[in-house]
């Protein structure tokens, strides 16, 4: 047996430069990468965490923010269990694009996908989006909300852990997808249909 009981797919989206890749690196490798190039297409990372004594494997797909890669990145939304929508609190335009992103998610992702809004770069002095504005937006659109700093490792662990907890609850509630390590049900189709007991 491989040593995890649940497998969840998490996809990060948001404008280029908001810090998606840094968030993933911080979480999976515990570092804040200096000057790496912009993500092309899709990048992939894995991390196994423990929730209530059970191993949960998180497959994390980090997508490129640029328009031109949109068609390939969209194809990854579909099998996602959780979508992290990231903006940069020090950059108003990244916040203004959120409705566009939501429209895309609406179109390409499973409608029961767990959605989390993340305002990144809280370490920065030049904040443009007050916390409550982000919060309001998240609430209006039925999303979880968190502010993070990949640089200062603030709330990053918590972000992914909460996702793992939430998804596990969902999974248990539906008692369906037990990822026992076999290759069978790792495709998202079977499991994403189970995310019913999310917010209500």
């Amino acid at each position: 047996m491989e040593d995890y009981k649940f497998l969840f797919k998490v996809v990060l989206v948001g404008n280029a430069g908001v810090g998606k890749t840094c968030l993933v690196r911080r979480f999976t490798q515990g570092l804040f990468p200096p000057g790496q190039g912009a993500t092309i297409g899709v990048d992939f990372m894995i991390k196994t965490v423990e929730v209530d004594g059970e191993k949960v494997k998180l497959q994390i797909w980090d997508t490129a923010g640029q328009e031109r890669f949109r068609s390939i990145t969209q194809s990854y939304y579909r099998s996602a269990h959780a979508l992290i929508l990231v903006y940069d609190i020090s950059c108003q335009p990244t916040f203004d694009c959120l409705p566009d992103w939501l429209r895309e998610i609406e179109e390409y992702a499973n409608n029961k996908v767990l959605r989390i809004l993340v305002g990144n770069k809280t370490d920065r002095e030049d904040r443009e989006i007050p916390r409550h504005i982000g919060e309001d937006f998240a609430q209006r659109h039925g999303m979880y909300f968190l502010e993070t700093s990949a640089k200062e490792a603030e709330n990053v662990e918590r972000l992914f852990m909460e996702i793992a907890v939430e998804l596990m609850e969902q999974a248990k509630c539906k008692e369906l997808p037990k990822y026992d390590g076999s290759l069978g049900p790792i495709n998202g189709k079977t499991s994403s249909e189970t995310s019913c007991c999310l917010r209500s």
């Binding site: 790496q36 297409g41 890669f69 099998s79 290759l183 069978g184 790792i186």
Partner: peptide, 21 residues
């Protein structure tokens, strides 16, 4: 028939876009 290649397609496609330094 129950074998799925979803992961492989996803991962290989990601590798096709590698941005290694």
């Amino acid at each position: 028939y129950h074998r799925r290649y979803d992961f492989f397609v996803s991962k290989f496609s990601a590798m096709c876009h590698s941005n290694h330094n």
